[in-house]
Design a protein around this nucleic acid. Structure first.
Lengths: 206, 206
DNA sequence: AAAAGATACGGACTCAAGTCCGTTTATGTC
DNA sequence: GACATAAACGGACTTGAGTCCGTATCTTTT
């Protein structure tokens, strides 16, 4: 993600581009790290795995981990990446109401429901990607994506303050908030879905 | 806060109460710690002060700090406590629209505006109280208080899912979210206030 | 006022995140 | 195929949060 945004920045500023492709050993180590992390998380749970554990298990130095992924949240984001991309594709080009074709308010509600389900299904990983450091969530590339999607739909629906409302909707769908509703308060997923979609509808009407 | 909730629990369960009052040395050390923390935060900023710094500056062992306040977020909460109590009093017994007398939707909007202003005014401290550990925010005593207040008002206004909507409103007003709006996106406080009060109104109508 | 028991003290200790920098390895060039 | 150099490596190191437990202090009881 660091590299992606760096590359993008360079593109935008028309600077001479850095190396377009990561070195072979770097790619190999990234893959080893992701594989090791996935295994360890599955075996012990996200919370019980340290970066040292991952580095050791991947047969890689700790510095390498941090160079590749920036920090713990970056590693989580990388692991989530492929699982997110299905949702992102469905939002951009899939069938309505998630994809284009339905009225914006319906698309927004569908997004909220789908995103809630996604967060619930990958709670620990999403939590790690959002809470590794304070404010991590808002700096995430994915957050930018979700937020922009919501903003555009709200805007298309004629809602006031689309940017702020988009942020508010995503704030309600934080991993820790969802965890609290689901596990501390024991709410069911359908219950949450219904409440969240209703909230988005109310924010989407002009 | 730990002690308060423990005492409350004992009350509720009618167990023989523990010591009603903290020991003299304990009270003295709590005061020393709070004073030292306040000074250091003012001098260097919240982020640049460690628990060791505070312990050393207060002339107190680190263990004492943790016994009194539980963790970093507990210390922040303790510092915030007296500043919050004004707001809490105004909500419970002050003049409308914040206090009783105004229609629930108006009271909710007034609360959101006042709480936003409070968070903005004590951003770093609130951030520390919310983000010291993952999920810290939702375990906070204050959070329970704000959340219940919102829930009751939403309920009185006849809104569906008052508990969930209350959580959603407060989720939009986390310190990191407010920091992002104010400092990363450069929004003004009135702009945020207007957007947030509008959101609460939309969630409050039946 | 002395002794007993409960409570609190404090700093050494553990554990994990994130940094640094001397060494190694890949890649493009002659 | 050897060389230059940019990039990547890896593990020791620093820093700070939170825990532990032997010692000191307070409070209550007699």
């Amino acid at each position: 993600m660091d590299e992606a945004s760096a590359a993008q920045r360079e593109d935008l500023l028309l600077l001479p581009a850095g190396p377009v492709q990561e070195r072979a050993d770097a790619a190999r180590n990234r893959a080893k790290a992701l594989a090791a992390a996935e295994l360890l998380f599955a075996a012990r749970g996200v919370a019980a795995v340290s970066m040292d554990d991952i580095a050791a298990s991947a047969g890689v130095g700790k510095g390498t981990l941090y160079r590749r992924f920036g920090d713990k949240s970056g590693l989580a984001a990388a692991l989530l990446d492929e699982r997110e991309s299905g949702l992102q594709a469905a939002m951009l080009g899939g069938p309505p109401p998630l994809g284009p074709g339905a009225p914006p308010a319906d698309r927004l509600a569908a997004f909220a429901a789908a995103y809630l389900e996604f967060v619930d299904a990958h709670l620990d990983l999403v939590a790690m990607s959002q809470t590794a450091s304070p404010g991590a969530r808002l700096r995430t590339g994915s957050h930018q994506f979700w937020c922009q999607h919501c903003r555009i739909l709200l805007s298309a629906a004629g809602a006031a303050d689309p940017g702020l409302r988009a942020g508010a909707i995503l704030a309600a769908l934080t991993a820790e908030q969802v965890r609290h509703w689901r596990h501390t308060e024991g709410r069911s997923l359908p219950e949450l879905t219904s409440a969240i979609t209703e909230i988005t509808r109310r924010l989407a009407v002009p």
